[in-house]
Design a protein around this nucleic acid. Structure first.
Lengths: 192, 192
DNA sequence: TCCTTACGAACGAACGTTCGTTTGTGATAG
DNA sequence: CTATCACAAACGAACGTTCGTTCGTAAGGA
């Protein structure tokens, strides 16, 4: 029942891979066709345009992060635990969807103005989740009172978003260790 | 006596600006010409090739960071103070050379293999400066003993390298405040 | 039989780059 | 002073290639 032919999802996945590796403008439709064993022109049976492919990859990235944040916020517990959940979720998304995430983080600015502003809005909303949790911890006294929630969330997200640039799954740092290290680093600045 | 004509340095600067904004592959030689008020073909009076332009911008970025690290390491003082110097220097480089730094950070991977590996080596050497200072602080007891210098330097550099993505000089956070916030954040995880 | 998938030729536009020519400017010679 | 010269800077046409995309057609599974 396995189809020999390619499906739309195959094309989007391959696009994520190539966009992540060589950038949107560095990838041609013929490159992408070659990756799937077909001609560049054949891709148009599955997809409307090259820009359309970028839109789909980036929006999948946005969806993944949004779902992760929603799940973390749904957990009950102290702000410290919730922040740890946010961090663990983010790292899970990055490690399980490297190419989509790399494209989401690095190539979204190549989108046309309309789609790009939607992505920016999604990122703002995601950052809001971090800010909320930190602000809650400041309010209820579990975090230091002189913490700037906005700056702290930017710093934490900076660490998380950079992971795709250096982390190697086969290296000496396992996934759980990574979550612990990032969490401890981010929480150290919050400890009163 | 200011020249009305453009100089090689003008071209490299404009290239840094456009590469930072639209990416290397997203910038054409005709775009770059337009930026300077001339034709794309006219650029070849100043420059060997488009790739050549990228090489010069990226190598300038590498030089700036290397000089900053050397200056910070030359200061005497406790590891905590030296780390703060490294951070302040990095932030200075980023804020005073936004376009060069953005190109250095985001477009270096578009270089051919030879130049790219030189950039990677330069980045490794730069990260080494951070790692050394942290390791020294662990050794002399001014930092916690269970700190992993490599991970800590990666996290700190992640924060520093992300600054170009969100910081606005005209915003509510001034340069000195930014240096303090990043330093406090990075040092909190080192406090014993 | 229809519908999806893929082909492969072709399109016009844009790409990086080359080249012969023109232009402007500063130095030099009369 | 002015005429001449050299040279760098810029032009603009053109090159060969690649780009994203279109289209008519063929093949094959439901």
């Amino acid at each position: 029942m396995v189809s020999v032919r390619n499906t739309r999802q195959d094309v989007v996945e391959a696009a994520g891979r190539l966009f992540a590796e060589k950038g949107y403008h560095g990838t041609s439709m013929r490159d992408l066709g070659r990756e799937l064993g077909l001609l560049g022109s054949s891709l148009y049976a599955h997809v409307e345009s090259k820009q359309d492919l970028l839109v789909h990859v980036v929006e999948e990235g946005a969806r993944l992060f949004q779902a992760s944040a929603a799940a973390a916020l749904a957990t009950v517990g102290a702000p410290g635990g919730q922040l740890r959940q946010l961090i663990a979720g983010h790292i899970g998304v990055v490690l399980d969807n490297r190419d989509v995430v790399r494209t989401y983080l690095n190539e979204a600015r190549m989108l046309d103005a309309e789609h790009r502003s939607r992505v920016i809005a999604a990122r703002d909303a995601y950052e809001q989740a971090f800010r909320q949790v930190i602000a809650a911890g400041v309010s209820d006294g579990s975090f230091r009172s002189d913490v700037d929630p906005k700056l702290h969330s930017i710093f934490t997200l900076s660490i998380l978003n950079a992971i795709e640039r250096w982390y190697r799954p086969e290296g000496r740092v396992g996934r759980d260790r990574l979550v612990d290290e990032v969490s401890d680093f981010a929480l150290a600045a919050l400890k009163r």
